[in-house]
Amino acid sequence: MNVHVREDMERHVLRADDGIVMGEDLLKVDHISLSFGGVKAITDISFDIKKGEIRAIIGPNGAGKTSMLNVINGFYHPQEGTITFRGKRRRRVRPYETAREGIARTFQNIALFKGMSTLDNIMTGRITLQKRNMFWHGLWTGPAEREEIEHREAVERIIDFLEIEHIRKTPVGRLPYGLQKRVELGRALAAEPALLLLDEPMAGMNLEEKEDMSRFILDVNQQYGTTIALIEHDMGVVMDLSDRVVVLDYGRKIGDGTPDEVRNNKDVIDAYLGVPHE
C-alpha cells in the first residue's frame, strides 16, 4: 500500500503579503542624525533591515539604541537623513501612523495597562486593525460584533502561541515581571506587524525566562515570518538569535554584519572593553 502522506505546513502569515520578497530591504535608514539641543544622540547612521531577518542593535549604555528605535517608530524626528519603509520614503509621521503601517514595539520599561487583564491588554493591540468606527463598536451588534469575534480569535491564537492561557483573565499588574514581558510581546504581535521592534526583551529576566523568551522570538520570526529588530544587552542571546548585528557607540555606527564579523571587529571590542577617548 503506498499512500503518500503530504506535509503541507501552512504558514500563518498574519498580515497580507506586502510585495516584498524575503531577504530584501524592508526598512532602510540613511544618514540619520538626531540631536536634542546641543546633545547629539545619533550621528549619520545608515543601515537596513531585510525582510524576515532578526536584526540586533547593540552598544554600550547611551550609545543611542533606544533613540534609534524611537526614530524608526516615529516618536523622534531626525533632523537629517531619510527612512524608507516598504520601499516608500517616509515623511514626518506620528507613532500611531507607523503602527498602522505595520511597525509594532515593546518597551524597555513595561508599558502595559496594569489594571486590565492579559486578554484585554492584547486586545488593545488590535485597535489599529479595527475597521468599524467607535459608533458601531459602541452599539456592539452586527458587523462590529463579528469583527470583535475575529479579533478575539486572533488574540486567542497569540495567547496559545505564547502559552499564557492560565493568565488570560488575570490583571496584568498581578503578574510576575517575566510574564508581563510576554504579555507585552503578545500585544505587539496582536497588531500583526511587518516589523517588530523589541527594546530589551530580556532585561531583568532569569536564565529560564530568557530561554523561554528567546524561543518565542525565534518562533515569531519563523512561524509568522515577522521581521524583528531588537536591542539587547545579553551578548549570548544576541549572538545566538540574530542574523545580523549593528553596533552603535556614542551615537555612531561602529560595526555592522553577522554576529561573527561583529565579534571580531576591533572597534566593537574597544567599545565594549573600554578604550580611553581623547
Partner: peptide, 21 residues
C-alpha cells in the same frame, strides 16, 4: 505543528497529514 517546519519530514508526520491520508 508549531516550530516543526524546518524538521526533516522523511520519518516525521503530523497527525493532520496522517488523518488526511
Amino acid at each position: 505543528a508549531r516550530g516543526m517546519r524546518d524538521y526533516d519530514h522523511t520519518n516525521l508526520h503530523s497527525i493532520d497529514a496522517i488523518e488526511r491520508a
